[in-house]
Amino acid sequence: MNSRIDIQKTYKLYINGKFSRTESGRYFPLKDSQGKTTVNLCQASRKDFREAVKFARKAVSGWSSRTAYNRGQILYRIAETLEGRKKQFIQELNHFGITKNNATQEVEITIDRLVYYAGWADKYQALFSSVNPVASAHYNFSVPEYQGVIAIISPNDNPLLGLVSLIAPAFVGGNTIVCLASEKNPLTAITFAEVLHASDIPNGAINILTGFSSELAEHFSSHKDVNGIVYCGENLELNKSIQENASENVKRIHYYDKINWLINKGQSPYFIMDHSEIKTTWHPIGS
């Protein structure tokens, strides 16, 4: 008989490449499928969010100036690391009521999705760039560039896949991210942060918080140093107020309504373009 006592895991926030507790000291308990409290999670505050944005902003210039090849390799590295820890993710999803089959499917699609976007890192630019034949003696070209800091409120369905499907295209496009994990099932988001941590992403480039969208959405959407915001929840009132707040600094708003992340339509380079700006450069042609 095995008399060993398991070590239980403490789930923290992931900010600036560090696992830290919320500054507010608040937590919220999560019950498993039997109704038993098995973990406590940090209930992130607006100050935690503020810190995350601060570090995300700091990380923008470094991450966006990485070569596309390098960004692709890092995304691929995340996929590799996740593959190696597949079992743990399946277990965590399963623990909170997702069937083992569904959990397995979700984790596998998540890994494939990361590989999918890793491959886009050095290709979408060619697809969405143009050399524009202007009617004057100028060379003129347009290329997609990052937007900056993207705030993401993850969906509750497919907590791991949804999170990764939103983070990956924004991240591969050179943006840095502050993401609120699924409220109902945030465990895998934090465990995913461990995967990120082991995959050579720069500090602050992806930050993951746990907490409540009812509390944090206001700050996600009103923070003036955030360039874009993503929401895909079903709360239309909240969606409206997010968009109203976002107008204060003309944020790029993406409301992904009822997207099934499990199918191929849940991935495309157009998601990268949602977090890109087109920059056009002119230069005279002369001697």
Binding site: N132, V134, A135, N140, W282
Partner: peptide, 9 residues
């Protein structure tokens, strides 16, 4: 400089 072939925004 402006041109219809060149995106602006």
């Amino acid at each position: 400089k402006f041109d219809p072939t060149s995106p602006f925004g």
